[in-house]
Structures are given as structure tokens and as C-alpha cells.
Amino acid sequence: MIRVVLADDQELVRSGFAMILEAQPDIQVVGEAGDGEAAIAAVRAHQPDVALLDIRMPGLDGIEAAKVICSESRTRALMLTTFDQDDYVYDALYAGASGFLLKDVRRDDLVHAVRVVAAGESLLAPTVTRRLIADITRNRPREGTPPSERLAVLTARERETLRLLGRGLSNAEIATAMVVSEHTVKTHVSNVLSKLGLRDRVQAVIAAYESRLIEPA
């Protein structure tokens, strides 16, 4: 059963999404919140698989709430907004979010998004992710460990896995490119995420660009 916490300051939106999700046999809404602080409290109380967070909420907004939730729990954040603006996507990705949806999302797409994120995947399509990450690393450089030092913990095969992840390849495609089994690729991906302290494939793509393993086009 996929456990979900919903956070939106508009009660009608919350109840509508809750009704859609509760109608699914494999999804349970375990908590609701009207602002970021309440969302964090609900996640701490219920430890859900997914937190569906509106970006714009009074007090603590969804992005700030996502930073806290993603840093202290295994709950995966799925962001909601009425504004299709890149800055929100950038901030949500950096906060640790695994997905990004507009509030006018279709019923089936909402359900699919929750299932995808709960399964440990990212919601953004690879081509969209690559474009966003390239823009992030080109226009919003971050301070931190020098790229060469950051990747020093990886083996040669893990570095190649990260490079292919950065290109948006699936495990099957990486297996073909590296001439190994998908099981081996899963092991490499797991090692990359663990060694670099990354939550998921979206953050791996960011790391590949930030480390200059892939240069923005």
C-alpha cells in the first residue's frame, strides 16, 4: 500500500486529490495539511511513502517543506503548482523532490505520478530532466567539493554509470551500452547514489552535470 500525505492550502484541491487517490486500491491518504509546517508534522507522524506538496502555501512553502522532509526521512516529495515556471522546478529539484506536477494534471496522470515516485523513480521525462539540469548547472552554479574530488570515490565503472545516467538512459540501455547485465547496472547505480549521498536518479543527473562529467549543450 502506498501511503500519501497531501499538503495544499486550498481545502477543495486537497479533498479532490484525496478522493482521486483514495479510490485506488493500492493508495492510502494518511494525512492532510494546509501549510508547510503542518506537512512536515504530518510526515513525521505518519512516515508516508510520498508527500504531495503544493509549492505555494502560507508560512513555510512547499519547497522549504520538501527540504526538511527529504533531509530527515525516506519520504519522496512530489511537487504541485499552478505555475509552469522553470525556477520552481529548479528549486524543487534542489530541495530533493522526485517529481513536479501542475495542479490541472489529469486524474490518471496524478495516480501514475504517485506510483512512479513511490517506486523510487523520478517523474520528469529524461529529455526534460536533461534540459532543466543543463540550465541549472549553466546558470546557477553551486559551491562545494571540486568535481574531481567528488567523483574520486567512484570506480571507473561507476563513473561511466553516472555519465550514462546523466544522459537519461534507463537501466536496460545502460546495460546494453556497458555490455553488462541489468542486475550489475542496478548495483552500480545503487553504489553511485550511496557514495555520492544522492536520493534518486534525478539527483544523479544533477551530479553528472555539476561534476562536469557531462557538459551542458
Rank of each mutant, 00 (worst) to 15 (best):
R3Q: 09
V4L: 02
D8G: 02
D8L: 03
D9Q: 14
Q10G: 03
R14V: 04
S15V: 06
G16D: 12
F17C: 12
A18S: 15
M19G: 12
L21F: 05
E22S: 15
D26A: 09
G31K: 14
G31M: 09
G34S: 13
D35E: 15
D35R: 09
G36I: 04
E37P: 03
E37M: 14
A38I: 02
R44D: 11
A51E: 03
L53S: 07
I55F: 06
D61A: 01
E64C: 06
A66L: 03
A66R: 08
A66I: 03
R74Y: 05
R76S: 04
T81C: 05
T82C: 08
D84Y: 02
D86Y: 07
D86G: 01
Y88T: 13
D91A: 14
A92T: 01
A92F: 05
L93G: 07
A95E: 02
A97G: 07
A97I: 01
L101K: 00
D104A: 05
V105I: 11
V105K: 07
A113D: 07
V117G: 10
S122F: 11
T127R: 14
T127Y: 05
L132V: 12
P141A: 14
P141Q: 13
R142W: 04
E143M: 11
E143F: 01
G144I: 06
P146F: 04
P146K: 10
P147M: 13
P147D: 10
E149R: 11
L151C: 08
L151A: 10
L154Y: 00
A156P: 00
E158D: 00
R159E: 00
T161V: 05
L162T: 00
S170R: 11
A172P: 00
A172I: 05
T176Q: 15
V179I: 10
H183L: 10
K186V: 07
T187D: 10
V189Y: 05
V192L: 01
V192I: 05
S194C: 09
L198V: 00
D200E: 08
V202T: 14
A204G: 15
I206Y: 11
A208H: 09
A208N: 13
A208F: 07
E215K: 15
